[in-house]
Amino acid sequence: MEKLVIAGKEFGSRLFLGSGKFSSNQIMEEAIKASGTEMVTLAMKRIELDDKEDDMLKHIAHPNIQLLPNTSGVRDADEAVFAAQMAREAFGTNWLKLEIHPDPRYLLPDSVETLKATEKLVKLGFVVLPYCQADPVLCRQLEEAGAATVMPLAAPIGTNKGLETKEFIRIIIEQAGVPVVVDAGIGAPSHAAEAMEMGASACLVNTAISVAGNPVEMAKAFKMAVEAGRMAYESGLGAVATNNMVASASSPLTAFLNE
């Protein structure tokens, strides 16, 4: 399997994991290990003054794992820049999953603010991985703004609906000059495999693993699916029978070439 390279850094795994919604940090840590992932997202929150809770960071911090802080909770570009600076300070990485979703119901990304924030953050030296709509033109603009990847959504976050935006993701993959990471909505290993077969560079999965009956086993299943999908893509998939092959012999269009 070809290595994935983002901003000059190599990744052996093409599965990115979100750290949300696990029933315990212990299970999260086991799932991370089972998934073989080398990139894990995390969020930020304000500390409680009488904080006694378990530090989640120590469960994901590992030499092989790139931390990917997100900007979840921000509503515009300025808030995103502030959050990014806080994340860089707190976690010692300039990598950032940029997500701006002012809409609390579906958590759909704000394209205008995401593009603005990408431009600003790239100038401030961040490696920006923007979560975005499966919008091919927006993805090109994000790339021009200096995004390290584009991360179009497959379906609304947490819905497990799979590749609802398939045709747009296909176009994005065809056009992109940076890795395309399919983010949000992937609900089953078959969805991830399908995205990888299409040529996606990686998948980011969270809910489908963290709320599975057995998250650790599910993490393993996703690992295998992502690898299988990638391998299939690199091997060149066979032809699917289509109408393209049907020729009508009645009045050949190319008869003039035999005259």
């Binding site: 979100g18 750290s19 949300g20 919604k21 696990f22 940090n25 999260m28 997202t41 995390l42 969020a43 930020m44 929150k45 304000r46 500390i47 904080d51 530090d55 989640m56 960071l57 802080p69 997100n70 979840s72 806080m86 707190a90 976690f91 976050i157 980011l204 969270n206 809910t207």
Partner: peptide, 8 residues
């Protein structure tokens, strides 16, 4: 003051 939290 912020610290790490779980999130996707």
């Amino acid at each position: 003051i912020i610290k790490a939290a779980c999130g996707g």
